[in-house]
Design a protein around this nucleic acid. Structure first.
Lengths: 149, 149
DNA sequence: ATCGCTGCAAAAATTTTGCAGGTAA
DNA sequence: TTACCTGCAAAATTTTTGCAGCGAT
């Protein structure tokens, strides 16, 4: 296995417990199982992908949808759109390092995590110019990977 | 009506005819009607929104789906994802000025067209660094508009 | 003992497809 | 005439919801 640094997401379970308790929500088997799958996978997964990686019968697909909505509201996962109309979710890294983007191969769907981000100053300008507050962005790159060219 | 400059998309119909003929495809009523709707609307529309703007019975919803796929392949429309999992389509402006982004209010769904773009040099770096070719990007901004704050 | 959560099943919403007849070229 | 295209209906996908029972706190 490759060494990773910004992929480390080990804080997930204690953090989940803390945040759930704080909202009077429960730490259940399905929720831990889902978080485990996300923790082991470095890139966004669809609900069905999570479902199929879970031990057979471990958790209902509807529960996965419900759990991901909850986790998204708790800001523990981030939703991504890769342009095919299917929601994908990735665990938010610990601390403030969560925000990042992806480079996706349109041939084989390989995903590379991208550190670079849209310039903050320019985003601020865009917000100010239009009178918007709390502006964020979604940004994904698409292209052909070395093998698919 | 407000004056517009970069929203002008009047070239649509002759261009459509030219491109369709070139591919041995046909200039039909539904296709012209759909293009007309897109031409009159400055921001991305969903299939259903196009459907409901069309005179009752003018065109089947399935035909709209089929037409938009065709137009997307012909690069006459561009598909956008506003983060809700529903496909939206906008007419590509004439010439090379087509590429742009949007600032979307998460409160009322108001859409503002944004001229600024991800820095080309940085995108090139990202492509080179990962050995990718033909790299493009999708970028949308989200925030709260003046009224919704 | 609560109140939230889950599985199951059904429904809703979005998108795709098959087919017979109609239409642009 | 010949492909292509359309409407209609049905199907396939993805996502949401209702409800009765189970389970975490």
């Amino acid at each position: 296995m490759k060494h990773s640094h910004h992929h480390d997401k080990q804080v997930a379970l204690p953090e989940l417990t803390r945040q759930l308790r704080q909202k009077a929500r429960k730490v259940t088997g399905p929720r831990q199982a889902i978080l485990n799958i996300l923790r082991q996978h470095p890139h966004p997964l669809t609900n069905k992908e999570i479902f199929s990686r879970l031990p057979k019968g471990e958790c209902d697909l509807a529960t996965i949808y419900r759990s991901l909505h909850l986790l998204e509201n708790m800001a523990m996962v981030q939703r991504y759109d890769f342009g095919d109309g299917v929601a994908r979710y990735e665990l938010v890294a610990a601390g403030a390092a969560g925000h990042h983007h992806h480079l996706i191969c349109t041939g084989c769907a390989e995903v590379v995590e991208i550190e670079d981000c849209f310039p903050h100053k320019l985003e601020k300008q865009i917000a100010d110019r239009n009178g918007f507050k709390a502006v964020t962005h979604k940004l994904e790159f698409f292209g052909l990977c070395p093998e698919c060219q």
